[in-house]
Amino acid sequence: MSDEVLLDQAEAETLAIRACRAAGAAPSTARALVDATLSAALFGPATLGFPHMVDYLDSFREGRINCDPTPTCERPFPAFFVADADRGIAQLGFDRAFNDLAEAARTFGVAIFTQTNSYTTGELGYYVRRLAGEGLAGIAATNANAMVVAKAGGPAVYSTNPMAFGFPLGEGSLPLIIDQASSATAYVNIVAAAAEGRAIPEGWAVDAAGIDTQDAAKALEGALLPFGGRKGANVALMVEMLSAGLSGGPWSLDTPSFREGSASPAVGLTVVAMMPGRADDGLIERARRQAGRLQEKGVFVPGVSGIDHPRLASERLKVPRSVFEAVTRIAGA
């Protein structure tokens, strides 16, 4: 039996909606989460998308996510949006403000959306991918509960604190999307390695005693390491200030786990939307040519390299069998 299940996109969407609704999510929450999940499944890393959806489904049922929130958004400055997700999913609050954010960026050249009081943001590339679809460049930053040490032997003080960057490359091209953690690897990669009994590379994590480990199970009891030592820790701090600092959300040290208990992580998210020049500047076409030139030199261009475009509506999604079975159980299928 294969370790993967192939699903038509329509089948995957229907199953995901059913699972969200069965877990208690309101229609608007289910729709926002499924849109983000399908985007991640098509364009993001394999560890996100449906594998991460299981965390959402568990959290709906265990109270970490408000299943029927009422997100609010204020505009204290003309191009600055401050949202409260009402303990719901981050995607819903972002979706509600998206059109106004994009319009403000077109008007002022730059606009900022910052949100607190949400569950973990999921695939961070989703937010800048949405902006790129509107011809806008974007930067996104978020935090979660502390699981990364600033240095080996120290206490966990940061989350993986990812940041994402997107730049549109014009009609007929996928956008450049950089989405990476401040830690040496993403937490979901440690979880996947532990579940499969695989060793992890040296330098990814430490055990509970603060000693470097290649045992994924011990890493889950310990903490992750920042990439590049102090430089990666500095990036994590910068992301912390952009997300929790600007939004007023909890610092990672004060954030509850997104996988245990009944408290909302209430994390912060900040998204900056930018116009890539005026319509007649040709900067998007210039960026497309540069991406092509880099690829000709063998450079991996994230968001573009290795991804077919355009994606066929008939393309089937690969879902790990264990994930498919978990989602199916919750959906009651």
Rank of each mutant, 00 (worst) to 15 (best):
Ser247Val: 01
Gly298Ala: 12
Ser118Tyr: 10
Gln91Leu: 12
Asp179Glu: 14
Ser322Glu: 10
Arg288Glu: 11
Tyr56Ala: 04
Ala209Gly: 09
Asn66Tyr: 05
Thr328Ser: 13
Ile112Gln: 05
Leu6Ser: 12
Asp280Tyr: 03
Ser252Gln: 07
Gly303Gln: 14
Val54Pro: 05
Tyr187Asp: 04
Asp86Met: 08
Ala25Leu: 10
Thr116Gly: 11
Arg259Ser: 12
Glu202His: 06
Thr270Gln: 06
Trp251Gly: 05
Phe60Gln: 01
Ala194Cys: 12
Asp55Met: 10
Ala105Met: 13
Ser247Lys: 00
Ala208Gly: 12
Asp280Phe: 02
Arg106Met: 13
Asp86Pro: 05
Thr255Tyr: 03
Ser247Glu: 03
Met274Glu: 05
Gly249Ala: 15
Phe80Ala: 10
Leu242Cys: 09
Gly154Arg: 15
Leu169Val: 11
Gly166Arg: 01
Phe43Leu: 15
Gly232Ser: 10
Ile211Ala: 14
Asn143Val: 15
Phe227Glu: 07
Asn66Ile: 10
Asp100Ser: 12
Phe227Lys: 12
Pro320Glu: 13
Ala10Gln: 10
Ser118Thr: 14
Gly63Ile: 07
Pro310Asp: 09
Pro162Cys: 00
Ser182Pro: 02
Phe77Ser: 07
Gly222Ser: 09
Ile330Lys: 06
Gly277Leu: 09
Thr213Asp: 03
Ala333Pro: 14
Asp215Lys: 12
Met274His: 04
Pro51His: 02
Gln214Asp: 07
Glu296Phe: 03
Ile200Asn: 07
Leu169Ala: 02
Asp35Met: 07
Glu285Asn: 10
Gly44Lys: 07
Gly135Leu: 01
Arg198Asn: 13
Pro265Gly: 08
Asp86Trp: 09
Ser264Asp: 15
Gly277Val: 13
Gly153Trp: 08
Arg198Gln: 15
Ala195His: 07
Phe108Asp: 11
Ser247Leu: 05
Val327Gly: 09
